[in-house]
Amino acid sequence: MIDTTLPAPPARPRTLMVGATMATGAVVMFFGGLFAVYFSMRADAMAWGSEWYPEGAIQLSPGGMNMATLTVSTVAMAWATHSVARNDRIHTYLALALTAVMGIAMINQTVFYLNDIALPVDYSISTTLLFTIVGAHMVMVGVGVLWLGVLLLRAFGGQDTSRHRDLVSAAALYWYASVAVYSVIWIGIYIGK
């Protein structure tokens, strides 16, 4: 009997995914360094009975809103990767645009909050850390939004297809990492104060 089974296609190395994983890992380690400083200095301050933030200075609502926005954006990002895998261009446009809009909303909210907060950056060690960490994360999200913009342009040009979807998957990985980093900010800074 003749074997009519087609040979399996050669495994395609997902070069972009591997590179993006490494780059994203480095970015996460950057925040890891900042978090380590933040939590170790906070623990020292607490151990000495010192005030970390003035009472009522850190509001939970802006951080919570941002967390909710970013959480929903992960669904939109997953929608984009799913759509591009199925060559569904309309849904890809919508999902990428929606994710980018939520990223912009998050940046807008953060800028508003950093301007609104009654503490200057040089008020204390804690505020210096707060502005550095939250600001750096804002930059991370900003880079993600730019990346999504490029993807959207490529999608309009018909270049994001199921055969060339690694750039979307790599962007999704980066986006999920930015949301994971924010979850630490939300819990450690906004909730834990």
């Binding site: 480095a26 970015v27 380690m29 950057f30 925040f31 890891g32 360094g33 900042l34 380590a36 400083v37 210096t128 850390l129 550095t132 750096a136």
Partner: peptide, 11 residues
């Protein structure tokens, strides 16, 4: 490790 050094520099 080098991103941690970068974090020191940014701070």
């Amino acid at each position: 490790t080098l991103p941690v050094l970068a974090a020191n520099a940014v701070l």
